[in-house]
C-alpha cells in the first residue's frame, strides 16, 4: 500500500526558502498570498504488514528532523 509522510517546519522556525518562494509568487503578480512554508512529501510503497509504529519510527528517526520539523503520516487507500 502507499503511505505518504508529510514533513513540515514547526511553527516558529523561520523558513528562508518559503519566504523566497513567497517573494517569487508576488513577483509573478499573484496577490493575496499571506505566507508560504516549504515542506516535503515522501511517498512510500510498503507491505500491508508494516505497522503504524514502524512508520512513526521511520519518520522520527530519519524522514523528519524533530528539532525543526513535524511529520504527519497518511495511509492512502487502494
Amino acid at each position: 500500500m502507499k503511505v505518504r509522510v508529510h514533513v513540515s517546519l514547526k511553527n516558529g522556525v523561520l523558513d528562508p526558502q518559503g519566504r523566497a518562494i513567497h517573494h517569487a509568487i508576488e513577483g509573478l503578480g499573484f496577490a493575496g498570498v499571506k505566507d508560504v512554508r516549504a515542506g516535503r512529501l515522501f511517498e512510500l510503497e510498503v507491505d500491508d504488514s508494516v505497522t503504524d509504529a514502524a512508520l512513526e519510527d521511520m519518520a522520527g528517526k530519519l524522514l523528519a528532523n524533530l528539532v525543526i520539523e513535524n511529520y504527519r503520516i497518511e495511509r492512502v487507500a487502494g
Binding site: V13, L14, P16, Q17, A20, N65, V67, I68
Partner: peptide, 11 residues
C-alpha cells in the same frame, strides 16, 4: 550536538 543547521537566512 543540539540544534540544527538550516538554510542561510539570505538563501
Amino acid at each position: 550536538l543540539p540544534g540544527a543547521l538550516m538554510r542561510n537566512a539570505g538563501i
